[in-house]
Design a protein around this nucleic acid. Structure first.
Length: 259
DNA sequence: ATGCCCCACGCTGTGGGA
């Protein structure tokens, strides 16, 4: 089984590339983030023509997540139980589904904006809710993973130049502690291999030639429990999909499983 | 070549991204 996560930065802008990518890679399950549309406008029909079912949690201009599967789609949960919300709004940042033998969450962790900002506190509270929501599945015997845009670089090596991030979000001890607390439920980091260069970055800013210069970050992560990680036969960042006109600023992370 | 920001909303800018 081939399972992937990809922040598409608007499903509307990315549908042609998404459909072509699903076909060319033979991906069975995709956890998608930043749909940036409503559930009604999500391209469910186009995906169904390719043989995929869609579980979509999206409400409009911002955020929006989905699980797309051609190997079954059961027990869908939209939203994080205990979601703290931001300014009294529970944003669409998490959706879960069981796809054949595997259960997954597709997550889009809040950005945080600046250390000390209310959005940063929200980010940390959101991580705590995520930890609580996945603990039972993480400890269970079924292959389970939380895939998505975590908006945290797990280690200094996961950004191109740590000195640039002095005082910034995405690299703070508190954010990394939140990742560690999440892993402590029984999840391991499935680190993909890069297709080029030394480090498996998954995001490159659109500006300042970041991609050609490989000024990237590894912030799209796959955290799996032991039944999941034991089944992994390969994992890579599909940087080819970051190239050219009409690319997302994130590349897909692809994981092959023997399940 | 990988190439100098892009998305939605909705309008001549604004907010958000990281």
């Amino acid at each position: 089984m081939r399972i992937a996560t990809w922040n598409v930065n608007s499903i509307t802008a990315r549908t042609p590339r998404l459909l072509a990518w699903l076909e060319s890679t033979g991906t069975d399950v995709l956890c998608l983030q930043e749909a940036k549309t409503t559930e009604a406008q999500f391209p469910v029909a186009e995906l169904r023509e390719l043989g995929y079912e869609s579980a979509v949690h999206a409400t409009g201009r911002w955020n929006g997540v989905a699980v797309i599967s051609r190997v079954g789609l059961e027990d869908v949960v939209k939203g994080l139980p205990g979601d703290p919300g931001y300014e009294d709004v529970q944003e669409p940042r998490a959706v879960a589904a069981t796809c054949g033998p595997v259960r997954v969450w597709s997550v889009y962790v809040p950005n945080g904006r600046e250390v000390g900002h209310a959005h940063y506190a929200y980010k940390l509270r959101w991580f705590e809710a995520l930890r609580a929501a996945v603990a039972d599945d993480a400890a269970g015997g079924r292959p389970f993973a939380v895939l998505g845009d975590y908006n945290v670089a797990p280690a200094d090596e996961d950004v191109w130049d740590i000195s640039v991030f002095d005082g910034a979000t995405h690299v703070t001890p508190a954010e990394r502690a939140a990742l560690a607390d999440l892993r402590a439920t029984g999840l391991g980091d499935v680190v993909p291999r890069p297709l080029k260069y030394d480090h498996p970055y998954t995001y490159w800013d659109y500006r300042q030639l970041s991609f050609p210069k490989n000024k990237g970050m590894r912030i799209d992560l796959v955290y799996g429990n032991e039944p999941f990680t034991k089944a992994v036969t390969d994992a890579y960042v599909d940087r080819e999909e970051r190239k050219g006109k009409g690319a997302s600023d994130h590349a897909p992370v692809v994981v092959d499983l023997d399940v």
